[in-house]
């Protein structure tokens, strides 16, 4: 390797190859962006309510206990498919009442059980959050998770 691969050749391969892979990556990203908007998340409109729900989700940092599409902390259940697990994916009203009941019964206070804090949310916030979770659930995630347990 010593004679053929000089330092300057190694450097040129590094710069040239990196630029090539960046260009390929950017191209695939552009395609993926369009695919997300037009296909994989197109099953339900990205309404004002869903957007607000995402802000509620972020404001309370749900991701640092739960996971969403498998990403996040692993301290609390996966929520990317929670509306399917609860059987409320097709009913906005049921999703709202189910989520409201859940949030307002926290913390359970049970000894030895992981505790979810009590978040004081308005009905509007809870409605937005349940719509956001329904929206996340309708995303085409290539069949993940393997089952309803999440």
């Amino acid at each position: 390797m010593a004679e053929i691969l000089t330092k300057s050749r190694a450097r040129n391969i590094f710069y040239g190859g990196s630029i090539f892979f960046v260009v390929v990556f950017v191209g695939m990203t552009v395609h993926s962006h369009r695919y997300v908007v037009q296909t994989s998340t197109a099953g339900m409109p990205l309404s004002e309510e869903v957007r607000h729900g995402k802000h509620v989700w972020e404001e309370h940092s749900c991701i640092n206990c739960h996971s969403l599409h498998g990403e996040g902390a692993y301290f609390a259940p996966e929520l990317g498919n929670v509306t399917t697990r609860w059987g409320v994916q097709d009913s906005p009203d049921d999703a709202f009442w189910m989520l409201k009941g859940w949030i307002e019964s926290q913390p359970s206070g049970l000894e030895g059980r992981r505790q979810m804090p009590r978040y004081e949310l308005t009905d509007e916030d809870i409605r937005a959050l349940s719509e956001f979770l329904r929206w996340a659930d309708q995303t085409d995630t290539q069949g993940w998770p393997p089952n309803d347990a999440g």
Binding site: M28, H31, S32, Y35, V36, S40, T41, H69, G70, E71, T139, D140, T141, Q142, W144, P145
Partner: peptide, 9 residues
Amino acid sequence: YWIGLPGYW
């Protein structure tokens, strides 16, 4: 893989 992007990934 599983966040809503195309299958080729």
